[in-house]
């Protein structure tokens, strides 16, 4: 059984491509089991609209009693996640 589904975000995520990632991730969530992990190690920048995609993903998973895990953000992205309080509602693996 596939317990964890994985996805990787790389480069920049902002208003120019947030919709694309939103649709792609939403499609993958249908086959996610217990949790869905997004690898952020290659993510260099994320804007407000990009953060909303992460929040929307976490919300969709939570409504199905599943969870989102954000893994390996670089220090700048981690600071942003902490400043926004995302760590209070989404599991972050450093």
């Amino acid at each position: 059984m596939n317990v964890n589904s994985n996805y990787k975000l790389t480069g920049r995520v902002d208003g120019t491509n947030a919709d694309h990632y939103d649709i792609e991730i939403s499609t993958l969530l249908k086959s996610a089991d217990q949790s869905f992990s997004i690898d952020l190690s290659g993510l260099t920048y994320i804007s407000s609209l990009g953060l909303r995609v992460l929040l929307k993903t976490a919300k969709a998973l939570k409504e199905q009693n599943k969870k989102l895990i954000l893994s390996k953000p670089n220090s700048e992205i981690l600071d942003l996640l902490l400043m926004s309080g995302f760590d209070k509602i989404i599991e972050i693996e450093k």
């Binding site: 902002d14 208003g15 120019t16 947030a18 919709d19 920048y45 804007s47 407000s48 609209l49 942003l80």
Partner: peptide, 18 residues
């Protein structure tokens, strides 16, 4: 405007998407 996908922002700037 940001909910409609027209604007995006970060800590430094507000910018137009569409």
């Amino acid at each position: 405007l940001s909910l409609k996908g027209k604007l995006d922002s970060d800590a430094e700037k507000l910018f137009v998407v569409s």
